[in-house]
Write a protein that binds this DNA or RNA. Sequence first.
DNA 1: GAGCATAAGTAGACCGAGTGCAGAAATCAA
DNA 2: TTGATTTCTGCACTCGGTCTACTTATGCTC
Lengths: 213, 213
Amino acid sequence: MDAQLGLRERKKARTRRAISEAAIALFLERGYDAVPVAEIAEAAEVSKRTLFAYFPTKDDLVLHRFADHEDEAARVVRARFAGETPLEALHRHQRAALERRDPITGLCDVPAVVAFHRLVAETPTLRSALLHYHARSVDALTSALLETTDGVAHQELTARLGASQVLTVLQELANTNQRRINEGRSADELASLALAEADHAFDLLRNGLAPYA
Amino acid sequence: MDAQLGLRERKKARTRRAISEAAIALFLERGYDAVPVAEIAEAAEVSKRTLFAYFPTKDDLVLHRFADHEDEAARVVRARFAGETPLEALHRHQRAALERRDPITGLCDVPAVVAFHRLVAETPTLRSALLHYHARSVDALTSALLETTDGVAHQELTARLGASQVLTVLQELANTNQRRINEGRSADELASLALAEADHAFDLLRNGLAPYA
DNA sequence: GAGCATAAGTAGACCGAGTGCAGAAATCAA
DNA sequence: TTGATTTCTGCACTCGGTCTACTTATGCTC
């Protein structure tokens, strides 16, 4: 697939990777705030100006990895089986992600992934920049949900609320898993708990917040 | 109440207000990004260093106004009537806030409030900084909810999920109201719609996301 | 009310993120 | 090879935010 692209495109891709990897290596080593972008540029052998041509902000040097998942939930809803409800599809997808220890679920103890997640979790700047991606996911899922209903009362509001709630829940589940992994537990030993929690969370979404109602 | 405080305290309060008001006036006039903090300091007749002694970041010059509401939901739950569930209390409180056109509901057409909200809504920096307050609210509400249950399965997770969902919903309701106000509608003409939407949203929280389940 | 400890404020240099610009270097198409 | 076009670079600049050393104001005590 690389061979299809011109030299220019291949070089760009290589430069981009070089910058990102230099950045993350340095961040993991010394902490996000302790590494100036100038040093990253130097390590990647580009000018600071070029670095910012590839990544609009320092945050993005780390967070661009989350960009791929931005519309994942929306895609899941759109690609659901016939007769399957949006929540069922999202639930199924989340269970499958947990089973395969997908990093996005937080249930992944591969050292590189753990270190990366810890970097994000421990850096306030990154944590709050991540919320930006969350907001975009909500927008995407909102439109996917809108396509599934028709003639429901308060349709747009309902879609937005549903989208926010689902994504908030997925986020919290991931946080919970990650926290436990950070405490040193293994993904395998946590798996059944994580699955039970996911089931519980989707049950709350489906049937309401019974414990507080 | 002012007289109770020493001169020093009164002066501090006055300086704080002077800075905040200078900032917001300038922001409303020219836009958040177009006004450097140095200019605000000058307008408030303090040094830049002093400005940052009162407000830790430029964001806070605007957003400190939201700080009071940070634990509002948690307080409502703790102060609920005997026999009232947390969701009932929050619902009642939200309805009351709408009735009194509380700015926090977004259903408020007082020009100064509208302008202020528009400033926040139109400034990406402020919007994302606001999420920080949201996260703190979630923490506060989570502990309030934890106090209300005992022996529920996945208790902590449930509390966190409930808190996130409730606050997300309140946020979206406010956004919706504010958007309509920004389009020029009056609070009074929107009130019954806003109340119906609030009822609908709390119904979803109580009974689950029926349209997508 | 004089004097002193302490809190608050100031000026100015400094750091790092991010931008604007004008020109150099590389790539592509012919 | 040439010429158009993209990409990269160096450098100066702005702005948010911090550091240091110093001055000024407040409040308390005798």
